[in-house]
Design a protein around this nucleic acid. Structure first.
Length: 489
RNA sequence: CGGGAUGUAGCGCAGUCCGGUAGCGCACCUGCUUUGGGAGCAGGGGGCCCCAGGUUCAAAUCCUGGUAUCCCGACCA
């Protein structure tokens, strides 16, 4: 047990904060609700970003960049979208400061530098992007337009939590334009798949693909598809969303194209995004009371070699040989050359940082032609021959990746509980947590009532929900499939 | 935005009630001894006591206002 972090059973929220801080991922900044992402946390984000970027490009998308500011008149053009975000917007009203005549050394907003039109700091970029697309799309030959941008956005949240909900966060937002409704819906689903694949294959975080209810839908969307993950405390996390926007934005921004038959039609749209919130999900899926646990595919450092008890010419030589062999296999490996810290301290430190594999190398090992291999996920240690160590480690990293996913999947599957009465729903939510699969009559009214009574929301209607006749747990009205309820972040 | 708690060295905290030289542990620096799971001893450095104003001979301590963080709630496509 770590000396430095609160255990999960003692205080889950504090445990999460301790991990973020002690593993050097991020810290709070001088700006309310905004975090500083530290180098180690950013290295992790870079790995996630790079992989997602590859996947977007493989599916035909290109990157571009649009402005941080959205003129208010554009922002308000799509009414539902504007209304949905209005309460959490930061707004620029002036463009100049001046010396304060009443207080020496202080500045004040220059009242003469008021902007003609306020600028909204983007909470999302549909408005500015669709205003731009109007000029880019004239013909069916201009479609589809498949663009992604990596950016920061600002949402003035009342209550923030590192990575999970910050006032400013980093994300990607894809904005695509299509000639037909079918093609746009196919794109929406395709990106939901990309997100699910990324979550499961790289983050080792199992997710449920589904569609949001009307109440939980993105403002301005016709349908919102989501990937929902389950955290170790039994709460759900919306990990990524992909929206079918219909012709709402094309209408609002007057984006029309000429079809082959010379008819004008509004463009069909999608948008999709994931954010630094994924890091919060990654932490809460795998980490333990000893610190961060990272899946090998995303770990900034996959293997660390620790000389025992400290660096020496013989150990350095042997360690560097191992280092080179691992690097030749494309493994991200470091040799811990610090000669001030003792091995035990380093072990704890590397465990805190979630490095998947630690190799311990001392004179005793060298004499026996072996090296100690310790894995972060199970805490198991075993001596391995130095001969063929690179192959062994490469295989072990795959095994760890697989094990983390399997463990999370088993936990998640054990926490999808079907219930057939409201009492059961309440009881499972209170005592066990996780997803509860129940029948629902399809109305927003019932959904809100259940939320009020249980604090749980409908996370999604799973894409693969089986047809099944049943009765709504609250109203008893007929329902033909189960939806997933959960308390959520 | 409502309720509660907390801001004192890089981190964790005591001191605040009852005003009077700013302390402890860890971390850091130096030396010696150690070294296969968070080393020991000795010496040393480091403070706008969250910010602003007020009361007082005197404020970390009392008063007023602000601000940040954490928890609960509301809100959160």
């Amino acid at each position: 047990m770590s000396k430095e972090i609160t255990s999960r059973s003692e205080d889950y929220s504090q445990w999460y904060i301790d991990i973020v801080k002690k593993a050097n991922l991020a810290e709070n900044s001088a700006v309310r609700g905004c975090m500083v992402i530290k180098p180690y946390g950013f290295a992790l984000w870079e790995n996630m970003r790079d992989q997602l970027d590859r996947m977007f490009k493989e599916t035909g998308h290109v990157n571009a960049y649009f402005p941080l500011f959205v003129p208010k008149s554009l922002f308000e053009a799509e009414e539902k979208n504007a209304e949905g975000f209005a309460k959490e917007c930061a707004i620029v009203t002036h463009y100049r400061l001046k010396a304060n005549p009443d207080e020496k050394g202080k500045l004040m907003v220059d009242p003469e530098a008021k902007l003609e039109e306020e600028l909204i700091i983007r909470p999302t970029s549909e408005a500015i992007i669709w205003n731009t697309y109007r000029d880019w799309i004239k013909s069916y030959r201009d479609l589809p337009l498949l663009i992604n941008q990596w950016a920061n956005v600002v949402r003035w949240e009342m209550r923030t939590r590192l990575f999970l909900r910050t006032a400013e966060f980093l994300w990607q937002e894809g904005h695509t334009a299509h000639a037909t409704k079918e093609e746009a819906i196919a794109e929406t689903l395709k990106m939901q798949d990309v997100y699910a694949r990324f979550a499961e294959e790289y983050m080792a975080m199992p997710v449920i693909k589904g569609v949001k209810t009307v109440n939980e839908r993105f403002a301005g969307a016709e349908d919102t598809y989501t990937i929902e993950a389950l955290m170790q405390d039994g709460k759900a996390l919306q990990a990524g969303t992909s929206h079918f926007l219909g012709q709402n934005f094309a209408n609002a921004f007057d984006v029309k194209f000429l079809k082959e038959d010379n008819q004008l039609e509004y463009v069909w749209a999608t948008s999709w995004g994931v954010s630094t919130r994924l890091i919060g999900g990654l932490i809460m899926t795998h980490s333990d009371d000893d610190g961060l646990v990272l899946p090998p595919r995303l770990a900034p450092t996959q293997v660390v070699i620790v000389p025992i008890p400290k660096p020496s010419p013989e150990l350095d030589e042997a360690a560097n040989k191992v280092l080179q062999q691992l690097q030749a296999k494309g493994i991200r490996v470091k040799y811990d050359l610090d000669d001030k810290k003792r091995p035990g301290f380093k072990f704890a430190e590397h465990e805190m940082h979630g490095i998947p594999v630690r190799l311990g190398l001392g004179m005793r090992d060298l004499e026996n032609g072996q090296i100690e291999v310790a894995r972060r996920d199970t805490k198991e240690k075993a001596a391995q021959p130095l001969e063929g160590i690179a192959e062994h480690v490469a295989q072990l990293l795959d095994e760890i990746q697989q094990n983390l996913f399997q463990k999370a999947l088993d936990y998640r599957n054990a926490h999808i509980t079907p219930v057939d009465s409201f009492e059961e729903l309440q009881q499972v939510l209170e005592e066990k947590g996780g997803f509860v699969a129940a029948h629902w009559d399809g109305t927003t009214e019932t959904e809100l009532k259940i939320k009020e009574l249980t604090k749980a929301t409908i996370r999604c209607i799973p894409n693969d929900a089986a047809e099944e006749q049943g009765a709504c747990v609250l109203t008893g009205k007929p329902s033909n499939k189960r939806v997933l309820f959960a308390k959520a972040y």
